[in-house]
Design a protein around this nucleic acid. Structure first.
Lengths: 340, 340
DNA sequence: CCTTTTTGCGAAAACCTTTTCGAAAATTTT
DNA sequence: AAAATTTTCGAAAAGGTTTTCGCAAAAAGG
């Protein structure tokens, strides 16, 4: 049984296409008898209007695009979950794409999604894009008049709605918390030192140090590149100076650091405290359980999707762009000392 | 700058739409001069053909739908990753949907995707669907002549291509391994006892026991329902009999079991061994690190996507349906004793 | 019986693209 | 200069849907 169209049904009954269209839409213009007859046939043969034709007609696909740098990261998975849930409840589908932290792939994907298949786009910039700082593909997208919301990895160069994590405050709070528990030499381990997010966190960290009257030491900022051996870097760090605490900007990295410290027989948190970003599933299962910064990924997804859909559905009105800042929470577990 | 169409360009130059179409497609039918002129204009104004119109014309959207029960599960995330990668490399996009383990939501979503927006569908049945065993929505989908590949959570009632994990063998091997390390009383903790996957694993487990001449004890099969208190169930289990090993059908559950045992001061693996299914990020970070069954999620995703796309692109040929069975690997860590 | 209103349905446009076919214009050949 | 050929472009269809407008015929009113 090949896909049924209005035309097929029309031919079957010897009526016009418009009659069938009106009949299946229960339009009173068509006599009850004909309506019932056609509706019955349509139901029996599982007629469903072709969404592609509808999209072309209505200039709306009821689909939104989502591009994240990677899906294999619990924060993005959570955001994705929030987006999907919200979009679905508001009648939208999701086209999901991954940039794999690659600039060319992001350019390609953004281009692809600017051709009418989505009513709006949610994007978190790839690492490479943030490094390159070339946002032409985004400008082109905005020129095409399709609503866009950026989240987490954003850029000042782009004017649009944004949802970001309060990373500055988060890093400040984190550092402050460690200081309050008596730590002095606090290191920060980052794989994303080039990104908007990473930079903000470093600034927040520096602010807290400054406030406490501690000089910022560049050597305590450990920049991890893709294939670097973390264990080696940590060993260097520990040899350099007595370290009281380590902040890791990623859940896996926090777990890795913990693992490395344990293998060196360093007591956590007695000798070294650890706080990590992204509160995922790992943190509470390792031992000692990790104190983490929760970014409320699901909520961010919901918020982002709602802003986008509002924008899509109020296309006429010119609402000014907003930037929502989502606060983080520090979830205290066993890898930090308590404030005495 | 509103979205540019062939019509717009045609009006701008005072030529016909077809001329513009041919020009942007670099068709030699159009004189070089006109071609260059139009191509230049098109490039400058970022003309891109409307994909929706193209889809309608070509009856192909270059998009495939993916429905998984949940994305907040590392196995499915991995599969998803594999699908996305493969689909992209073959020029397809992904529309991703979640059934949330709900039958009505699955029915709705499958219906939605049968209306021409996808060229094919990849599906893993929701738990509720497998329990209900009502596959009418799937039959309707297949009737609409859209290729479908089922993975992991499948059903005998549906005839289509399938990719499944060798769960029978996996559970058999797992149990056998535990037996070989000297365990006798082996319990199995499952949250998915109703699903195709869960049933197969129980059978594999029983087979191994039988082979070893150990009577299957129903009380050692712990069925966990959604809001059950796992700790209580484990306590009952341990009170019932001396337990040598526990198999958990899920990564989180394996970690939970480990946590519970540790809190009861039970030594792992000396007193009780643990093996879990789904080798995710958790397993190697907990202490002792968990011995796990890896289902090779990414590979399953790649395989599934390739089968689907092959089917889409060879639509004419009638290739018989295949069922691919993917072997698992046992990843030995510290939660099991070694075979002496 | 004629006029007006209502009822029931069809034609056609619009959405955007590609492609086939045909026609006109320009060029070459006789 | 006439005929044949080639070049260059346009008209139209097809894909499926909704919707506006219009046209018939039937019903109602006088």
């Amino acid at each position: 049984m090949k896909k049924l169209t209005l035309n097929n049904i029309a031919q079957h009954f010897g009526v016009s296409i418009s009659t069938v269209s009106k009949a299946v839409n229960d339009n009173a213009e068509i006599s009850k008898a004909v309506r019932d007859k056609i509706q019955k046939y349509a139901k029996e043969h599982h007629y469903r209007p072709n969404r592609v034709a509808l999209s072309l007609l209505k200039k709306s696909t009821k689909t939104i695009g989502v591009i994240v740098p990677t899906i294999l990261n619990y924060f993005f998975t959570q955001v994705f979950y929030g987006i999907e849930k919200t979009a679905n409840s508001r009648g939208y589908n999701i086209i999901s794409c991954t940039s794999d932290e690659s600039y060319p792939k992001e350019v390609h994907t953004v281009g692809l999604l600017s051709t009418g298949i989505v009513d709006g786009l949610i994007l978190s910039l790839s690492h490479e894009t943030q490094t390159k700082a070339n946002m032409e593909h985004i400008s082109n997208f905005i020129d095409a008049q399709i609503p866009l919301v950026l989240f987490d990895r954003v850029s000042d160069k782009i004017e649009c709605d944004k949802v970001i994590v309060d990373d500055l405050q988060a890093a400040y709070n984190t550092t402050k918390h460690l200081l309050d528990t008596g730590c002095r030499n606090i290191a920060l381990v980052s794989e994303i030192y080039n990104s908007s997010v990473g930079k903000l966190r470093v600034t927040g960290y520096q602010n807290a140090l400054e406030e406490a009257g501690i000089a910022y030491d560049n050597k305590l900022l450990v920049k991890v590149k893709k294939d670097d051996d973390l264990e080696l870097l940590i060993t260097f760090l520990l040899d350099y100076k007595k370290i009281d605490a380590i902040i890791a900007l990623d859940e896996m990295m926090a777990a890795d650091v913990l693992y490395i410290l344990k293998s060196k027989n360093i007591k956590v948190p007695e000798e070294v405290s650890i706080i990590g970003f992204t509160n995922g599933r790992l943190s509470k299962y390792v031992s000692p359980a990790l104190t983490m910064v929760s970014q409320h990924g699901k909520y961010i997804g919901e918020l982002t999707a709602n802003i986008l859909i509002d924008r899509i559905e109020n296309k006429g009105d010119l609402i000014p762009y907003t930037t929502k800042i989502v606060k983080t929470s520090l979830i205290e577990r066993e890898s930090t000392k308590s404030i005495s």
